[in-house]
Design a protein around this nucleic acid. Structure first.
Lengths: 120, 120
DNA sequence: GGTAGTACTAACATTTAAGTAAGAAATGGC
DNA sequence: GCCATTTCTTACTTAAATGTTAGTACTACC
């Protein structure tokens, strides 16, 4: 994954994608935002297990990379919304493909354990 | 990513996918094998920068997870081929989506540096 | 006999990702 | 005055991923 500031090696498209949305959380963040803008806290609650530090960090990186946009309403207590940019929406087919494959894979593990959750 | 042996949390499909094909190399391995079976050494040469240790490790993990198949011809010098299983082929749309998004993203960085490589 | 190729394995080191915990600023409600 | 809420920062620690180096077994070739 890319360190800050975002630098993408202008080489293999697959590697570029991995640098942008690799890691444990970024695809899940994009998936959540695919349904519409969300506040920071809504996003945190929608991603069980993520720490505030990671969410801040990943949102900043996605925003720096141009996949998300930050709206600060300047209110107190703070109110900040995040939403996908056009570039971020261009990643939604990737998110969908990841969800599809995961679902397919889980379905091949016939009957071991409970069925899959909804994507987070 | 999953430690060996492969264990997939039967939960979110996106997380499942990340555990299976997350990391720096697995999508690239699948992409290579998408075009047909390859020998270990061919795969290594097709993935500049990968170490033998990583390639062995990732191939074993993909094979344990059922995405690839290993054929040992039992010859000397050794001759081993890897190819996708049906489950592995089910991941090819994900690889394609990753390549598409990477290409799209690189095209939005208009004119900075040389054009993208072919996917590896 | 020495060298090269092949597909590995093992021990170790380094780098990167992720997690934990505490706190800050500003306001509203009690 | 005290506590809660919200978004975010900082310092620190742990865990995981990846890299490096060396070595193995067997054969072919010069």
């Amino acid at each position: 994954m890319a360190p800050l500031p975002v630098f993408v090696t202008p080489r293999c498209p697959v590697r570029t994608t991995l640098e942008l949305v690799g890691g444990k959380w970024r695809l899940l963040v994009l998936h959540q935002l695919g349904a519409g803008p969300l506040r920071f806290g809504e996003l945190r609650r929608a991603l069980p297990g993520i720490s505030e530090k990671m969410l801040v960090q990943e949102l900043r990186l996605l925003t720096d990379a141009g996949l998300t946009q930050r709206h600060n309403y300047g209110e107190v207590p703070p109110r900040v919304e995040y939403e996908l940019t056009d570039t971020g929406r261009a990643a939604l087919p990737l998110v969908a493909a990841a969800a599809d494959f995961g679902q397919h894979y889980l379905s091949t593990l016939q009957g071991e354990g409970p069925p899959a959750d909804q994507p987070q």
